[in-house]
């Protein structure tokens, strides 16, 4: 047994050395990206300090044009939305950004499905692992789903798990990747007839599913939403919670009722709901796919949104 323990000890030392070396290479590659979603996240976590910050998921990334907003208000604006992310991510990012500088306005794009129980929304926070070394305040969010996550960070490789292909691709083909527009990454396409038929099929199925299922609500997600608004209110930041346009109108549901009741606890927060807006519902020409507006649709929406923010913008200026 002594021989085994001796060799095990040396083997662990070699593993630690290899882990640090490979982890260093992965870290260098990861933070050398200038384009793509990882680079956008790095900018959002490490640098974003604009006057107006837009939080949200892929719908935020595709729906809000910071240049239009900047032009309207004469202030800098950045879209820190991220594909596949939900309320825990916005809450984590809010902590880091507010620590650096409190913005003058916050727009939070939300979707009521973000409050239905689904553990994957916490697992997806693993995209923040590369930043935990520098921003330790992120760890508490990463631990929501798995208390052992903190200890896994002893490995230098682990934070970069599953990032190698994308990071290498973003680095090698950097010139071929289009630049984002302050975090805004619009979809430059329109649905063709086949796309419309396919999308109608998805919407039909989604309607059937939503009628059948009565999903459990995620109390942690609501608590994080409340925390998000509380921080904005405490910092006296004009805040807008927006449900951006959807292709199908949203039928009344419990998750939305609860979302509204929490929002009402913060009278200074403005809630804008575009999910039942006839200018967008069933307007396939304004959508690139079932979830996202295309460029024309999103620019129309951003412009419309600005006019709605009119009263507050006067106070803001």
């Amino acid at each position: 047994m002594a021989l085994f323990l001796k060799r095990l000890f040396f083997f662990i030392l070699v593993i630690i050395a290899a882990d640090q070396l490979i982890g260093f290479c992965l870290r260098t590659l990861y933070f050398s990206q200038h384009k793509g979603q990882f680079a956008q996240t790095t900018y959002a976590v490490d640098s974003a300090n604009q006057d107006i910050i837009i939080f949200g998921s892929s719908r935020a990334v595709r729906h809000y044009s910071p240049s239009i907003i900047s032009k309207a208000f004469g202030k800098s604006c950045y879209n820190v939305g991220r594909d596949g992310q939900q309320i825990p991510y916005y809450a984590a990012l809010e902590d880091v950004i507010f620590e650096r500088r409190k913005p003058s306005m916050v727009i939070l794009d939300i979707n009521t499905w973000e409050f239905v129980e689904n553990s994957s929304r916490y697992e997806k926070l693993s995209i923040l692992l590369p930043y935990c070394r520098k921003h330790s305040e992120l760890i508490k969010y990463i631990q929501i789903d798995n208390p052992f996550e903190k200890y896994k960070l002893f490995s230098a490789i682990y934070p970069y798990n599953s990032t190698l292909f994308i990071a290498a691709n973003n680095k090698i083909f950097e010139n071929k990747i289009p630049s984002d527009e302050n975090g805004y990454d619009p979809l430059n396409k329109k649905m063709d007839d086949a796309g419309i038929t396919f999308t109608k099929k998805i919407l039909e199925q989604a309607k059937i599913d939503s009628e059948k299922k009565h999903p459990k609500l995620d109390s942690t997600a609501y608590a994080l939403y409340k925390q998000f608004l509380q921080k904005c209110v405490d910092a006296h930041i004009p805040t807008f919670v927006v449900i951006s346009p959807t292709l199908a109108p949203e039928i009344p549901n419990e998750r939305k009722d609860k979302l509204l009741s929490i929002t009402k606890e913060f009278p200074s927060v403005t809630f804008l709901d575009y999910s039942n807006n006839p200018n967008y519902n069933d307007h396939f020409e304004k959508f690139a796919d079932v979830f996202h507006l295309n460029r024309e649709g999103s620019e129309e929406f951003t412009s419309e949104l600005i006019s709605k923010l009119g009263k507050v913008s006067q106070q803001f200026k």
Binding site: E123, I157, L164
Partner: peptide, 12 residues
């Protein structure tokens, strides 16, 4: 093999 697991494995 360990590094492959850490780099490419799915941990959830």
């Amino acid at each position: 093999m360990l590094a492959l697991i850490l780099i490419f494995g799915v941990f959830n």
